[in-house]
Design a protein around this nucleic acid. Structure first.
Lengths: 199, 199
DNA sequence: CCAAACAGAATGGACGCTCGTTTTTTGATG
DNA sequence: CATCAAAAAACGAGCGTCCATTCTGTTTGG
C-alpha cells in the first residue's frame, strides 16, 4: 500500500468539498458530508484543514484559479477574433469546465461572490485571481483592436472590462432564466457592434 | 402570509430583515437578530412569517421587485439615448437605490442569486420579476434602434440582453475589485461600439 | 517499538421555532 | 362613559436539533 502524499489527501478532501459546495452552497455543506464523501474521518479532515472556513477559502482559491487559467488561455489564443466570438469561446469553455470537473462551475462562482461579500480573505483571493483575468481580457481587446476589429482609438481597458463583465451576466441568467447559451449571450455583443447608418 | 390586515407589521419586520440580510447574508442573519432589530418578539415575528425560509423569500420578492421597478422606469424613459448612456443611468440609479433604502442593494442581489441556486421558489420569484426587466431592456433597445443609434437590422432581444447582462458584472466587479463606477463600466459599451475604420 | 496519521464518538454552542403566559384590543352592556 | 369578559396579539424563556470541532483511543508504516 503506497503512502499517499499530503497533497493528494488534501486534494481528495478538496474534491469532495467542491462537489458538495457546488450542489448545496457553502453554508449547507456540512463537515459531516465532507467527511463522508471524502472517505476519511473527521479527525483526518481537520488534520488538513484547521476549520471549515479554511476549507471554504481553499475551495474558492482552487475554483477561481482554474477559471482564471481557463480564461487566460483562451483570451490569449491566436489569431484575434471579433469580440463576440472571443466571448462565445470563453463561455463555451466555462461550460466545458463544468463537465470536465464534474461539478457546476457557475454555481460555485455564485457561492464565491457571496462569500466574498463577508470574508475579506475570500474577496482578496478572488480579486487577485480575477486581476489576471482582467489583464487577459485587456490584452485580448488590444490585439483585436490592432487587427482592425475595433476603432484604433478604442480604450482597451474599457473594452476588456465590458467583455469580462458579460460573464457574471451569463452565469446569473443561466441560473435564473435557464434559457441562455454561449451563442445567444455573445450575439448581443455582435448586435451591439453592428454599424448604425452614418449620421 | 396570514395577516393581510396589518401589513404594516409585516413591512416593519421585512425592513429589519432586509437590512440584516444585506449586511450579513441570508444564512448569517439569525431570527434572533430579526427579532431584536424589528423591535418585536420571536412569537410576533413567527405570526407574520411562518419560517425563516418564508421570510427569506419575502425579502427576495421585495428586493427584486424594487430593483425591477426602478429599472423599468429608467429603461422606459424618453428620449432614447445611446446604449451606454442608458446603462450608466441604470447603474447610477442602482447605487441611488442603496442610499435611498439604507442598505446595500448589490449585496442583496448576490444573496438572491445564491439563494436561487438552491430554493426553486426564490428562483421563480427572480425569474418572474427579471422577465419584466428583460422586456424593459428589449423595449429600450428597440427605441434606441428606431432612433438610428443601432443598426436597423439589430436584434433588439439580443442587444437588450447584452445591456442587461452588464448589470451582474457591475455588481460583482464592485464587490471584488471595488474600483468600478457606473461611468467606467458603461464606457466599455461605448468603446465597443466605436466605429472601426471601414475595411 | 515509536511516532505519525486516523477513526469516530462525544461536546458544547448556536439557532430555528414553540408554547404557556401576559398584555392589549375589542365590543357588548348598564 | 365605565366596566368587564372574551378574543387577539405579543412576549420571551426554553426545547430540540444540528453542526463544527475536539479528544481519546486505535491503527499503521518505518
Amino acid at each position: 500500500m503506497p503512502k499517499v502524499s499530503d497533497e493528494h489527501r488534501a486534494a481528495q478532501i478538496l474534491d469532495a468539498a467542491m462537489r458538495l459546495a457546488a450542489t448545496e452552497g457553502f453554508h449547507r455543506m456540512t463537515m459531516a458530508e465532507v467527511v463522508a464523501v471524502s472517505g476519511l474521518s473527521a479527525g483526518a479532515v481537520y488534520g488538513y484543514f484547521r476549520s471549515k472556513q479554511e476549507l471554504v477559502r481553499a475551495i474558492a482559491q482552487r475554483a477561481v484559479g482554474r477559471i482564471a487559467t481557463t480564461i487566460d488561455a483562451l483570451a490569449d489564443a491566436e489569431p484575434p477574433v471579433p469580440p463576440a466570438e472571443g466571448l462565445e469561446a470563453v463561455l463555451d469553455r466555462l461550460l466545458g469546465l463544468s463537465d470536465e470537473l464534474g461539478y457546476d462551475v457557475p454555481a460555485l462562482a455564485i457561492q464565491g461572490w457571496s462569500e466574498a461579500t463577508r470574508d475579506p480573505e475570500v474577496r482578496e483571493i478572488l480579486g487577485t485571481e480575477l486581476l489576471r483575468v482582467r489583464r487577459a481580457w485587456r490584452d485580448f481587446a488590444e490585439r483585436v483592436r490592432d487587427r482592425g476589429l475595433l476603432s484604433p482609438e478604442a480604450d482597451v481597458d474599457a473594452v476588456g472590462n465590458a467583455l469580462m463583465a458579460m460573464l457574471p451576466g451569463f452565469i446569473v441568467f443561466r441560473t435564473v432564466f435557464g434559457d441562455v447559451t454561449p451563442r445567444s449571450h455573445a450575439s448581443g455583443v455582435a448586435e451591439l457592434m453592428r454599424q448604425p447608418p452614418s449620421r
